[in-house]
């Protein structure tokens, strides 16, 4: 049950991560290693602890136990903004754009961590700030074009159609120049055509931008289509891991989806 070793060093390494809410153990001693330039998926029935696991990585929750290493450095105890600055970005299951801001502004906020200008720069606009701002806007437009929203920068985030909002979230995440990108159900609510486009986008993220992608996804077509490695969570514990094929044939996975968690739709 080895990870899909592609010869790259490990990007993210979760070691026996445990997160409890009161009596409920949402994530129970989960260990996952993700090599760089890999698309890794975390799947599992609803309530399996996938999003909680994401929240532990991005620093929204502090795990009670275990450690999360990013490029060999522990993330535990760092604030979300520090973790973002280290090179981890994410999207959300229920789209969370800055709704009163334009698409371009959303992406510009994504760039926040590697822009420098502060209050002084904002007020007096020295040439360094002007230059930085111009470059940032240029980069943000390129980012929008990359995810398939060229020329939509001046639209209000909420006025972009649903599929586009998901892409805009990815653009915002990319703007922080991450090494690891966490996508939380990026194809939820999309039609088959949009889903195909997004799968293609995920592959480009890995191949063109050399990113490591960690994906939560319910649509098995997406999971099996783009993943190099799949981990299965069930009631907070990891019950299987391997290539898409290995996982598909694992009897424990079949049981988790059909036997006890039978209410699940996609699988």
């Amino acid at each position: 049950m080895s990870a899909a070793a592609n010869g790259h060093p490990v990007c993210l390494s979760a070691r026996r991560v445990t997160k409890r809410f009161g009596g409920l153990v949402a994530v129970d001693s989960v260990s996952i290693d993700i090599p760089e330039r890999t698309v890794a998926s975390v799947i599992g029935p609803n309530g399996a602890g996938k999003t909680t696991f994401f929240n532990c990585i991005t620093g929204l929750y502090a795990p009670e136990d275990g450690d999360i290493l990013f490029q060999g450095r522990s993330l535990v105890g760092y604030r979300p903004d520090s973790i973002a600055a280290m090179g981890i970005a994410r999207t959300y299951q229920n789209i969370r754009l800055f709704s009163a801001m334009t698409a371009l502004e959303n992406v510009l906020v994504g760039q926040h961590a590697h822009l420098r200008s502060g209050v002084f720069g904002a007020i007096f606009r020295p040439s360094s700030t002007v230059l930085e701002e111009e470059r940032a806007q240029q980069e943000a437009r390129e980012m929008l074009a990359f995810v398939g929203l060229p020329g939509r920068g001046d639209l209000l985030a909420t006025s972009i159609p649903y599929g586009g909002q998901r892409r805009l979230e990815i653009a915002r995440a990319l703007a922080s120049r991450p090494k690891l990108l966490l996508l939380d159900e990026p194809t939820a609510g999309m039609n088959p055509q949009e889903t195909d486009d997004l799968m293609h986008l995920i592959e480009r993220l890995r191949d063109e931008l050399a990113l490591t992608v960690l994906l939560i996804e319910h649509d098995m077509r997406v999971v099996m289509g783009v993943s190099d490695q799949v981990s299965v969570l069930h009631y907070g514990t990891k019950i299987s891991e391997g290539t898409p094929k290995e996982v598909q044939n694992d009897p424990r996975v079949v049981e988790a989806y059909l036997g006890t968690g039978g209410s699940h739709g996609h699988a």
């Binding site: 809410f21 620093g59 929204l60 929750y61 502090a62 522990s74 535990v76 105890g77 760092y78 604030r79 520090s82």
Partner: peptide, 8 residues
Amino acid sequence: MRRRLSGP
């Protein structure tokens, strides 16, 4: 749901 603020 108290979260620790930062490592250092």
